[in-house]
Design a protein around this nucleic acid. Sequence first.
DNA 1: TTGAAAGCGCTAACAG
DNA 2: CTGTTAGCGCTTTCAA
Lengths: 345, 345
Amino acid sequence: MKKRITLKQIAKELNYSISTVSKALKNSPEIGIDAKTKIQAYAKLYNYKPNNVALSLKNRKTKTIGVIIPEMVHYFFAKVIIGIEKFAKKKGYNVIISLSNESFEKEVINIETLVDGQIDGLIISLSKETLLKQDFYHINETIDLDIPIILFDRISSNVYCDKVIIDDVEGAKKATNHLIQNGRKSILLITTEDYVSVGNLRTTGYIQALKENNIELDTDLIIKVEDKKSTEEELHNIEERINEVLKLKSNIDGIFAVNEIYAASALKVLKKNNIKIPEEVGVIGFTDGVISRFSDPSLTTVDQNGEKIGKQACKLLIERLNNTNNIPYQTKIIETSITSRESSK
Amino acid sequence: MKKRITLKQIAKELNYSISTVSKALKNSPEIGIDAKTKIQAYAKLYNYKPNNVALSLKNRKTKTIGVIIPEMVHYFFAKVIIGIEKFAKKKGYNVIISLSNESFEKEVINIETLVDGQIDGLIISLSKETLLKQDFYHINETIDLDIPIILFDRISSNVYCDKVIIDDVEGAKKATNHLIQNGRKSILLITTEDYVSVGNLRTTGYIQALKENNIELDTDLIIKVEDKKSTEEELHNIEERINEVLKLKSNIDGIFAVNEIYAASALKVLKKNNIKIPEEVGVIGFTDGVISRFSDPSLTTVDQNGEKIGKQACKLLIERLNNTNNIPYQTKIIETSITSRESSK
DNA sequence: TTGAAAGCGCTAACAG
DNA sequence: CTGTTAGCGCTTTCAA
């Protein structure tokens, strides 16, 4: 093993002081030309690289951004991260990612480990468990420590910081309207329990769209899924419930699912029951992911523009990082758009 | 903003020396009971948390593991990370993830930023570009610095370290045999260019299976895809090529694709040509991902057991971290298994 | 133009 | 039982 060379060693070897070496390596005008060349040559030869830990201990700056997301399998999060990475790279920041696995405890641990020393700022999408507990102490404490946090997608109004979201209500409205404009009248909503903010908001959008189109709300047409983790077992559960409602309400002619897993499940149940898509039932999902693209029929979806979200979040963060004076907190809303595919006509 | 309290401040406030405070907080038996209680109470009151940067500067230990993967959208990588996370958590390690985006340069930068200070060891799946360039200086240099690296899935024999792989040749053989046992004789292989080690090995497995079953190899039945990134455009390209071969060779009755994107593309082309799956053509993919599960027909696949790979990699890493004496490098091979679904009968 | 010294927050050997 | 001191690698002020 070849230990990394330090300033001290260079200094000793070349008979300069540590500070001279340090300055020479930073090309400080204080240092004489030959000292500089000699030191720089030696450093290059031995492949000197400053020890970042020591640097952060001094500067409290790491030029890296931490991202905490609930899980990796969602295409949406992948997209967001691509957006973050692109922007960060342009600005000379590095990105590291941590997973909360939808767990409150893991989220707390992740923040703790990242916060001291590893990162300058954080971009977070809250875990379901955190949303359920409504405990944001770890977030607020971090902000208090002057580590900027940007929340995206899964946010809470009980945290004061910059946020990037899509207009979930509007997106859900668009989706529902899309089905209504296709002549659908009896639209099944597959959503999450209310504590998941996005589920909640999308439900609101659905209800608003119905109201605006003078369609009476039938609460039997709303399936609220308790989704802590999307395990094989739970998937099966969801399908069961969709199946039941489908049996109960034979006049259903549209389905709006608040994510693509639910939408895909709906597709599956529909096909199993030999119901023609989109002729008999039109289906629309939320989140433009791999499943939607590759499903058969391919799924019409509300595209969340994950990459834009990531870019915006990263931009807000870096702005805040460069402005120690207090800019007021902002909430940016990213437009959604409908990606029309085979599952709706 | 509320700055984090330090040992120094506690010491001053309570009129002890810094080292006494340090020891008291670690419950050292050296320290008197009342000093201890007083200090601990004060620390708790002011929510003292040790500064990890300072700690790593001393110990050169961070208790965190870095993972570098080429991209996030692959379900396989997500699975591996789940495996890593689970095992790491059990052992008291934290995990941070970085993306290379299949880029050599990004991989180098990621390693550099992680290596100093952020992590104790690294688990990496090499980027395609790195594999193409065959430049492993950054990896070898890191190992030289005594930062253990475990390579998984996308590895190279030019790097000496622990590795975790599946038996790609064997897996591909299983897949091909699966089709042959279904009575297929003319099997199309959709694979990558040879520099991607996994593609290469799977091609070998395919060829071996044919040989063992006395089926003559027809190189026209092999499509090698140049896949740097799986963009929308490239996907289209792949479909085109499959389509051409299908036209050219009308007797094709089986398709083996070395990943699920290719398999899904094959499905799509087949359906477009009104070819019945699995009656006329059986299809099998590699990697048990979301697409395979949700496609129609659902895809039979070779399951790579990503979670097991992750667990094994993490185990090897932590073992090495705890054993400064040199254990010889190992290469662990994880079993594959066929997950039978609708696309093959 | 160069260097000594202090300090970032913490640990640990050693002294008292 | 408690404190002094040196040191991890680096930057920066101040003095020479």
